[in-house]
Design a protein around this nucleic acid. Structure first.
Lengths: 338, 338
DNA sequence: TTGAAAGCGCTAACAA
DNA sequence: TTGTTAGCGCTTTCAA
């Protein structure tokens, strides 16, 4: 190759003694090329250390074989695990993954999406169903396939891969009730542009109502999905006059933060206050007491979303995905009230 | 715009009544264009909902304004935090970040790098200094700027942003010694293609030697950088005849896994066994007992690496970066031997 | 400050 | 099965 500048397909073709077209086919659709030709091209590629030029391919073919995913956060282990399986599955299907986080600031989502459109991604994976109208408009304008993950989109029939947050919260609340609790506080996360949080609250309320109870408004504590959010929630709960016997948290990070705060304040968990989480991250069984939580299909969501989005790109038949399932995992942090 | 197909710069130029060249300049180098022209172009862009075509720009300009980073893992909170600041800083500097993980399988690194080269990234960020020769060759062949992070590359004088793992381990070992421990085991991670692990071992050994002690080979326990690695390490240590009084772990995940295993096995921490970690992730102060660890400059590494790599791309003067500092954080998991 | 025009490196349609 | 060729949408000379 010419020193300094990278070899092009034309260099390869010349060295292999074939046309540009054949060289291109040898690399992209080897089946359409005679074995002999294929081999000569491969040898030339080897010899020149040729690497294809992605932008040129993308420009000519109008596809980048890249899929973008926008998450609320990359720190949260629940997403990290799911991204891992999304990425891995996409890779196996011949696609690369571009990820971004809006850092739980949904208003940033549109800007991120714009920059992905500019990059020419072939499709998009989003978390949840509640997005700015402009997001769906942009997706529509550019005819970009997309799939919504984690939640189910019952109302709008948009393509999604997820589970029912309502059911998950309902089951957890039932478990809590079954342990004899009646003074129940929740720290579900933050509800703005987050239907998952709203579904959790609704599911919890429904279960309580089934037992003739109601969720006290001052015991619905919105906090960020972080350790610190959990600490805050505990402080807030302790500040009130009455005290709950259990705090149902919207994810395991909140729950673990809450446990840490209790420890500092000298409150026994679960003796004085039971705490439950959601997601069942690895850490949940690593803390003391171990955390009662809801196991959710993190890995499955990533893998199924990958298949779903690729079949959407390929225009394959709709491939209906049924809701994934969740289950309550009882551990030491939830105590029976006697 | 024509329905179905996205508008091009030419559409914009036509609508604005200017040439293609002017439209391009209006978007890329607005200063070179008369205010009036600029405004007409902007209006046309607005009106058409025009979004630039990244691949076409990349092909014509030979730059993608994209930087790739390859990490051993995206799960480890230490990297997650650093990636966050790398991404944020790059974004502010006008670059996008493409991340990948080789999942602590260094042999995968070359393949990932190849695919990034193919994508046409402008530069690369790698973790550590110990990489396959082929990696550096590829980088050289394509004249790709790169920066090595976390470790310092004292030997080869390659561009890097990091701290001395040797010093960090040395200080931690000194702290442990100062607490009266003489029976010391380490679980530093896995050393293959990982100079950070080797530096940790060396630093620890040096400190022990300073105290007239040596690290027993059977107490150097290589394990993955995970909770499970920590559990394994504890099992291994307990399987032996003699027992250490302290386990120095290569990161906080290992340490927390080790603590969890001790709890299960009925071993008091720090009563029966002291445990220390490294990195000072948020979780370190969230567990009971709180973890003694080494605080490392996660955020700074990301931000400085971003600046460094961009100045390398711009061909700015070398911008020497001095080693970043670390400090031991003493918490409850390390007990004084009396 | 602007316009015209020549590519950037590749894919894909077409013809052979 | 192969070669030829016309773009893909943009940036960037060069001249005006």
């Amino acid at each position: 190759m010419a020193s300094g500048s990278r070899p092009t397909l034309e260099d390869v073709a010349r060295l292999a003694g074939v046309s540009l077209g054949s060289a291109s086919r040898a690399l992209s659709v080897p089946d359409l090329v005679k074995p002999g030709t294929l081999e000569r091209v491969n040898r030339a590629v080897e010899q020149l250390g040729y690497v294809r030029n992605g932008p040129a391919r993308a420009l000519a073919s109008r596809r980048t074989r890249t899929i973008a995913a926008i998450y609320p956060s990359l720190d949260n282990p629940i997403f990290a695990v799911s991204i891992q399986s999304l990425q891995q599955t996409l890779w196996d299907l011949g696609y690369q993954l571009l990820v971004a986080s809006h850092d739980y600031k949904p208003e940033r989502e549109l800007g991120l999406l714009r920059s992905f459109v500019e990059r020419g991604v072939d499709a998009v994976v989003l978390v949840g169903t509640d997005h700015d109208d402009a997001v769906f408009e942009l997706l529509g304008q550019y005819q970009l396939p997309y799939v919504l993950t984690w939640s189910l989109d019952e109302a709008n029939r948009r393509p999604c891969v997820g589970f029912s947050y309502y059911d998950a919260a309902f089951k957890m609340a039932q478990g809590v009730l079954a342990h004899g609790h009646t003074d129940i506080a929740v720290c579900p996360g933050q509800a703005y542009r987050n239907e998952r949080v709203r579904a959790r609250i609704a599911g919890t309320q429904a279960a309580l109502q089934g037992a003739g109870l109601t969720l006290r408004p001052e015991w619905i504590i919105e906090q960020p999905f972080t350790f610190e959010g959990g600490r805050q929630a505990v402080r807030q709960v302790l500040g009130g006059l009455a005290r709950p016997t259990v705090l149902i948290c919207g994810n395991d990070l909140i729950a673990i933060g809450a446990m840490a705060e209790c420890r500092e304040q000298g409150i026994q968990v679960p003796g004085d206050l039971s705490i439950t989480g959601s997601d069942d991250i690895e850490l949940a069984s690593m803390v003391e007491p171990q955390l009662t939580t809801v196991h959710v299909p993190k890995v499955e969501i990533g893998a199924l979303a990958a298949h779903r989005i690729v079949s959407l790109i390929d225009g394959s038949p709709a491939l209906e995905v049924s809701p994934l399932s969740t289950r309550v995992v009882l551990r030491g942090s939830l105590k029976r009230i006697t």
